[in-house]
Design a protein around this nucleic acid. Structure first.
Lengths: 236, 236
DNA sequence: CGATCTGTTGACTGTTATCAACTCCGGTGG
DNA sequence: CCACCGGAGTTGATAACAGTCAACAGATCG
C-alpha cells in the first residue's frame, strides 16, 4: 500500500483505530519524484500542502552566516512540513538528500479530516511534537557533545527511526548521506567528519561502505553517542 | 489582569476574538512561586498541567554527557510545557532562572476548552509550532555560528520576545541570566562567554550591568548575530 | 569519457576549552 | 556588626579539539 510507511510510522508512536486506518487509506495524494538536492520547499514559501515522504530522505536546512546548517533528516513515513498546517510560512528550506519520492496532501484535506477524527488528530499532533523533541535533542547534541559523540548519536537516531518503519535489516541500513551532509548536520567540518568516521570504524563500532551503514557494536556506539531512545517517544 | 502577559503573547502571534478573550479571562489557575534554580518539571515526569509563566524566567535543560545544555529560555506569557498536552512524558527538565511566578492550568481544562474553541486551539497550536521554530534557529545558532554571533543572536532573540510582551523599555530589559546560563545555552564555556561579552561591550553594541541589558546599536548587534525576526513568526 | 563530486590525507592554524587564581558582591550566621 | 562563605565575574597561561587549505585518488554521473 502506498501509505504503508506513514502507517508504520504512526503505529510506532501511537495506536491507530480501524477508523483511522480507513481514513488514511482514502487519503488523496499527488506523488512526485525528486533528484538529489532538489528543493521541495524554500525559506519564505507559503505552503498549502504537506508532503509525506514515501521513499528516500529529506533534510531541513537553514543558512546561518556563510554556512548551511541541517536541522533535521527525514525518513520514509515522515511528514516534514506538517507544521505548515498552522504555520504556513516556511522559515527554512526542505530538500531531498539523494533521490526521493514524495506524496503531497492538501491542507484542506488535513483540516477537514482532522476536525472530524479527533483520535487521528491526536496522533498527528503527537508526531509534530516528537519532531520538536528531536530538535531539542539536536540542540543538546551539537551544543554539548564532542565530534565523535555527535556522529555516533546521529547514526543511532537514524537507525532507530529507520527501524521504526522497517528499513533496517539485521544491523544494516542504507542512507545517501555524504560526509558533507553529516558535517552540516553536526556543526563540524567535512574533514573532521571524515576523521571521526574513521575513528568509529577503527574502534569497530560501525562499518560505512558506500551507502550502507552497519552498526557493529550497538551498545558501545550508543554509549559513545550518549544515546537514549526516550526522546523519540516510540511506543514501548 | 492575571493573564495579561499570556494575552500579550498570543496577540503578538495571532488575532484573538472577543470570545477567545472571555475564555482566557475565565481560565482557572493555581499560582505558585519559585526561587532561583527550582525544578518545575523533571525529565521523566508525566505531566497533567501546563504552566503559564507570569513573572521571571524559565529554562529547559537537558543533560548531555557531563554537561547541562539549555534548550530554550522562556519569558512571561510563555507556556513552556504546552506540548505535554499531547506528549505528557517529559524528556528534559524545566527550571526557574531567578525567581519566577507560574500559573498552573490543568490539561483537562485545556482539552475541554480547545475542543470547543477551534480558533483558540489554532492560536495555541501556532504558539507550540513557533516554539519548534525557535528550536530550529537554536540548532543553526549553535551549529553554524561562532561565539560572538551566538551570544549576539541570543540577546536579540530575548529582546524581541520580551518586547512582544511589553517588557522592554527603551532599549533596556532585565534578565537574571548568569554567564554560565549563557554558556549552557550557547554551547560555550563560561570563560569564553565572559570574553565574548567583553568584546560586545568594547564594540559598543551592548551594555550589561547586573541584570540590566541595554542594546546600544541594535542594527549592528543584529548584523553580528545574523539575526532576523522571521523565525519568531510575530504578526506584522 | 571527461567532469564533477566524494572521500582521504597531511600540514598548519585558530577558536575555544580547561585550569587556576583572584576580586567583588550579597547573604548568612555567629 | 562583622567574619565568613559561596556564587559570579574576570584574567592569564596552556592545551586540545576542530577548522582551513591544499592536493590527490577513486567513484559517479551525465
Amino acid at each position: 500500500m502506498l501509505h504503508q510507511k506513514l502507517i508504520d510510522r504512526l503505529r510506532a508512536i501511537a495506536d491507530l483505530s480501524a477508523g483511522d486506518l480507513n481514513i488514511l487509506a482514502d487519503m488523496p495524494t499527488t506523488v512526485k519524484s525528486f533528484s538529489d538536492g532538489a528543493y521541495i520547499l524554500r525559506d519564505g514559501d507559503k505552503s498549502s500542502h504537506c508532503c509525506l515522504l514515501l521513499e528516500g530522505f529529506l533534510a531541513r536546512h537553514k543558512i546561518a552566516g556563510d554556512r548551511s546548517q541541517i536541522l533535521s533528516f527525514h525518513v520514509p513515513g515522515d511528514i516534514p512540513d506538517l507544521q505548515t498546517l498552522h504555520l504556513p510560512l516556511m522559515d527554512h528550506d526542505l530538500t531531498s538528500v539523494g533521490r526521493a519520492t514524495v506524496a503531497f496532501i492538501s491542507h484542506d484535506w488535513f483540516n477537514r479530516t482532522l476536525d472530524r477524527a479527533p483520535s487521528l488528530a491526536h496522533v498527528f499532533w503527537r508526531e509534530i511534537l516528537i519532531d520538536a523533541a528531536v530538535y531539542r535533542e539536536w540542540i543538546a547534541n551539537i551544543g554539548a557533545r564532542d565530534a565523535i559523540a555527535r556522529i555516533a548519536h546521529l547514526i543511532c537516531e537514524i537507525a532507530a527511526r529507520l527501524a521504526a518503519v522497517g528499513l533496517v535489516s539485521g544491523n544494516s541500513f542504507n542512507v545517501p548521506f555524504t560526509q558533507r551532509n553529516l558535517a552540516d548536520a553536526c556543526g563540524l567540518s567535512n574533514v573532521h567528519v571524515n576523521r571521526t568516521l574513521q575513528e568509529l570504524r577503527t574502534r569497530g563500532l560501525i562499518a560505512w561502505e558506500g551507502r550502507t551503514v552497519t552498526i557493529l557494536k550497538r551498545s558501545d556506539l550508543e554509549f559513545v553517542g550518549d544515546f537514549q531512545t526516550n526522546y523519540l517517544h516510540l511506543k514501548q
